[in-house]
Design a protein around this nucleic acid. Sequence first.
RNA 1: GCGCCAGUAGCUCAACUGGAUAGAGCACCGGCCUUCUAAGCCGGCGGUUCGGGGUUCAAGUCCCUGCUGGCGUACCA
Length: 542
Amino acid sequence: MNLKERLTDVLQPILGSDIPVIWSVPKRSEQGDLSTNAAMIASKRLGRNPREFAQELVDIIDPEAFGLEKLEVAGPGFVNVWIGPGYYHGVVRQILERGSEYGSSSTGNGQRVIVEFVSANPTGPLNIVSARAAAIGDSLVRVMRKAGYDAMAEFYVNDAGRQIRRLGESIIARAKGEEVPDDGYHGEYVKDIAKALDTVRLYVEMEDLAQHLAGKLPDPSLEGLGKLAAGLITVEQSETLSRYRVHFDRWFKESELHDGGDPQKALDRLRELNAVYEKDDAVWFKGSEFGDEEDRVIITSEGRPTYLLPDIAYHLNKADRCDIAIDLLGPDHHDYVNRMQAALKALGHEDFLSVLIVQQVHLLRDGERVKMSKRAGQMVTLSELLDEVGVDVTRYFFLQRKTSTPLDFDLDLALEQSDQNPVYYVQYAHTRTRGILRQEGAPKPDLNTELSPLTAPEELELIKILEQFSETIARSAEAHEPQRLVGYLEEIANRLHKFYGACRVIGEDEAVSNARAALVLATGIVLKEGLHLLGVEAPERM
RNA sequence: GCGCCAGUAGCUCAACUGGAUAGAGCACCGGCCUUCUAAGCCGGCGGUUCGGGGUUCAAGUCCCUGCUGGCGUACCA
């Protein structure tokens, strides 16, 4: 149990169980190391003077028992707490003991989570929004695992349906040297696939294509050809993603769903629940009864399911496998959220799904937006981005900002290998910890190193931020906001640099040197693990 | 029209889920390298948190309303 929890345990009986005791770190050091507003909340309900009540809380805590320096009532009724250095020395020791395990918690209680992201159609290379989603989704999974969730990363492959036929058509057109249809896929990669398939000719579909091109077969299997190409594209996507250090635990194919008859089962279930009806030869889901703006067609008048039905089936499938589903969707899909939530509500899975909209990314070069057009096949792909700016910078840039806000990705800044570029600030801090300990004559700290010489403000400020690692991770996980971790790591870097400026490690009195070296080692551990959660490397030298 | 996301320093963004005097980076100005990497540190400049109401001890944060921008608004996915 940590300090906050122990303090809360003492206060809770006086406050009553319905008053939350929330400890926060005040912005100003004159307000102590920890603060709670519980007395103000409680006094309202109990009709008491908040400051008097706060004093009562202060009186009941024995400072020595908790290693506290003092407690105070402040402002309108805050209880402020000053923590003694002994507690912080314990934090450093704990980091050294736990190593890369430091920061883990059981906040998630082992809840099973499926985070679905990217899920790009297998009809072309990954674009920039996918790149952003990939970085965020992957880090979110890492963060959630660290916070005690049983989290899995999943990629939903839309390998069925119309777009696969269109892909087949586009390939045939390219193979014939004809223009690709307007609603087809225009990128250069389609040409490459056509060529590759033609060269290999291993598959029945390709034989069909060859026959077709020779004028012997009027209609090759577009579906089969499309699937084949989709498979190749999926492989390519997965290779790019693994270069990007993005890992998926499962690639879930839409065709698996169809093979198992899941969409039909979902439809039957909705029928049983009386959540669908027929109108104009089509089957409609009663979305408006479950929080959507309007009812939605799930089987067209031609008898074909719309994309919504297999998607409902897919989410039902997830509901069998996890407690919480998180979907990261592109900005062009946000109208889809309500209807999916409505469907899940109808099926008894309210509050199961939470959706994060990954907003638009604009690439800037020379201060100008880079024009991207899918229609004309002109896109900057993830793969190209990685070639140009590298994995660390790309991931860091995407993870810096809240996912729900549009993002300008400044290529010139990304390429700049200087202090202008924030990635290096944190990486440099890690390098600095390694550099100090690499020095000749540097102490070799271990678990028995005496830490009590750590008393300088810069030392304690550094430890205070390290102490918040676990909580920062837990909050990032709960809020589904990995970007919080970025700001946190920058804060560690900043305090390390200040410490570095104020306190020499090597050449001081031996006890001081040893203790400081232990602190430097601990800081390096946290920085490295933090960067790892972002999928960014922690270099030994720069 | 309706829906979603945004609007905070000149620019890019934070703000620990409603707390105390709204913070960083970039840009601009000025300091600090014969000592562990100056990819760093210190100081300065810079704000009606889009406007207007409301809720309360307390609002950038919650509610209402108006404005601006982006995206979406299919029997496409």
